[in-house]
Amino acid sequence: MTTTVEKPTTTSASPRHAASEKSRSEARLGWYLAGPAFAVMLLVTAYPILQAFYESLFDYRLTDPANRSFTGLTNYGVILTDPVWWDAFGVTVLITVVTVAVELVLGFALALVMVQALKALRPVLRAAILIPYAVITVVSAFAWQFAFAPDSGFVNSWFSFLGLAPDTDWFGSPGSAIFVICLAEIWKTTPFISLLLLAGLAQVPDVLQEAAKVDGATWWQRMRRVTIPNMKAAIMVALLFRTLDAFRVFDSVYVMTAGANGTEVLSFLAYRQTIARLEIGLGSAVSVLLFISVVLICGLFVKGFKVDLSQARGE
């Protein structure tokens, strides 16, 4: 995934600077410096992806290696004509859209709080906001599951004034189960988005803010006309990273429902075919399709929204 993000910048950068000798040697130095990392990246990402694609062309069960046979694209046909794939696809898109949208709003609010906090308070605040992101996803998923469980959880009794029955089964129906999964995801990854946005906020030149203030712009006008346009790149990068991450949601679903009650997501589908059924071929095909979806999302962001990744890194 990371290689796909980086490739366009490296390849498009070299011909542009080919004009002068100096820039050519700079490009060469760049390759010397980044080359080893690039090679390692190819080894640890491109190789498994190619291997998965190769395996996906076979009917191959781990416990029955003798009957391994080449079936071409049959596995892809099986997957794309199965409603299970499309249901899981729908649930994944739903979780992605809901969590990323809520996280963007919340993360922006938190970033504003951090940027405007007193200097003395800022490190403490930043650490406090970061804590959920430091918690291991499986641990946070268990914590949320215990909180909402009807037997050991506290949510049903704390919110009984809202009309919650003490035996409300949150994981018993798709709507409420997805709600809890989204809540856990949002709690955990909002800090990530808010940190990226904080970096973006810091890039907005103070001069512009002051000029707008002098011209009598209200807070809202400054936000809409100055702050947000100036940090568009940071917002897009934050959105892109979170969308790619959210699309591969696995831990929370695995811990909370194990895909039951209409909460199946794509990475869980891949897990079930490969690890539980041991159908390496079929499972690899699901993984390849998941990978293609992620590449498409990435392409959509980079081309569609014109996200310039190099700008976000402050180059």
Partner: peptide
């Protein structure tokens, strides 16, 4: 039982 669709041996025993 309550939460029958998620009831396992442990919750049964409790």
């Amino acid at each position: 039982p309550a939460a029958f669709s998620t009831a396992d041996e442990d919750s049964n025993s409790e």
